[in-house]
Design a protein around this nucleic acid. Structure first.
Lengths: 258, 258
DNA sequence: CGCCTTCTTGAGGGTTCTCAAAGTGGGTGG
DNA sequence: CCACCCACTTTGAGAACCCTCAAGAAGGCG
């Protein structure tokens, strides 16, 4: 149950950071409570302080902001293995809400347990920090996307990003996966209207770049889609940085921090 | 010299985190090298790994991304006291560049020194993490801004944000400060063209909301500007979170998802 | 003085929005 | 089982916002 979810979170951490056997064990032994949230419901209500982080286990979630006129704007999307609220450990008053995109399964992890790991292990502190930095890197790319790229390229870029993240999370391949969002939700992720999203999707279909069957999406020419969206995966930080103290992936020992 | 810059950085950390006397001392004793960068020059070149973080001391800097067609897009702006590259400690291969907006003075702080602080003090690790989380919070707001807000509101929001950040950094008041960017640079921060930026600026001037004299900008009706930009300062995390039993700052109660 | 960047103004065109409505599918209750 | 409702998907037409191209005015710097 929670083993699977925590293992996926640990895998995500190990992709970018090195942890010792005991540190890995500490991650896997984090207490967590299962939480099921129906589509369109909030897992985090905007403005209400939280005392736990949210690990996505199945389904997708989104961080959103709400404007005065009521229309919502998705600023980040989270897939299985993402600790979508890890930053709340250091900033527990969220200005944003977290919404389930479809029916989504979370695991709640108490801040106190996470804080204890941070206080006891500099390596875990660094790993957590690096994990939220990865999210920030994606945010920065989204800022750029909405700036000076038009909707067709923006959609292509988003699909490419999701394909790699889902492949990494092992819930699909980069050319074939479930797109667990409705077109209105996709619109909020792109910063355009639902009507326009529909037209742009049709353009991608008519270009034979993608095809959809229910929630499944198939990418027929990933490279061409990536060129259309000017997609460069570097910002996803899927390559582990080579650093002096870092061990190769899967290493069982780690030099003590000095 | 470097005292002043490090003190400003420490003040920024203390605004959101608590540090002991020895931890504060350790921050102030960080080794750093002065670096002057002329307008439009890069302090960080995209793709080139760095071994130091950059503390802005005087002037403004911007993090930018470059599209294939050559046009640049500013995803974050940094003012004095901001450690604009702190995340590079955990992600040293930047996908982005950092550019001086006007002539800007930085102090370079070696990653090794910062990492040593992180390894030896969980409180400092948490403070650094929280600092980059603040930057991420601003990024998220920028994503929202570019999504479903048009250029007039976007500009109003940006001016409000900068006014509070500069007031915090003590390089101006919230109604009167130096806007150290050209209109083309402002355009890159808004995700519109320079021509359109000029027209929108004139709209703000003709509405008697702002006036400019050289680089100085005066905000005549801050509250009205904030309403125009639907500006809510919560995302700047200027309120230090309480240890436990947090009160939502400026949060209006929101009915749970319908 | 000449050059460069920035600031400003104008006109036309393109992307995206708004409003509207019809078709589709899943869920619920009679 | 069917009717009903609701949200999602799709299509159309006109309008609004912003872009592109162009060119003149203003200011800093050698």
């Amino acid at each position: 149950m929670s083993h699977v979810a925590l293992q996926r979170f640990l895998d995500r951490l190990l992709l970018r950071s090195s942890l010792s056997a005991s540190e890995r064990q500490a991650i896997l032994e984090l207490p967590c409570t299962r939480l099921r949230v129906d589509s369109h419901r909030d897992a985090v209500v905007p403005g209400r302080p939280v005392d736990h982080a949210l690990l996505v286990s199945a389904g997708w979630a989104a961080r959103y902001d709400q404007l005065a006129n009521g229309c919502r704007e998705i600023v980040a999307v989270y897939v299985p293995g993402d600790m979508c609220d890890l930053h709340s450990v250091v900033a527990p008053v969220p200005g944003w809400g977290v919404q389930a995109l479809g029916t989504t399964e979370f695991f709640q992890v108490p801040h106190s347990a996470l804080q204890r790991l941070v206080d006891n292990s500099p390596a875990i502190a660094t790993a957590f920090w690096r994990d939220t930095t990865t999210d920030a890197s994606i945010l920065a790319k989204w800022v750029c996307n909405r700036g000076r790229r038009q909707s067709l390229g923006r959609l292509a870029h988003l699909i490419c990003e999701l394909s790699l993240r889902l492949e990494q999370a092992e819930v699909g391949t980069r050319t074939h996966f479930k797109l667990l969002v409705t077109q209105p939700q996709l619109a909020e992720m792109l910063g355009v209207t639902a009507v326009h999203t529909n037209r742009v999707l049709q353009m991608l279909r008519q270009s034979r770049l993608i095809s959809t069957l229910g929630p499944m999406i198939t990418i027929h020419d990933w490279d061409r889609l990536a060129r259309l969206g000017e997609f460069d995966p570097a910002y996803l930080l899927l390559e582990k940085p080579q650093r002096r103290r870092d061990q190769p992936f899967g290493a069982t020992t780690v030099t003590a921090s000095e």
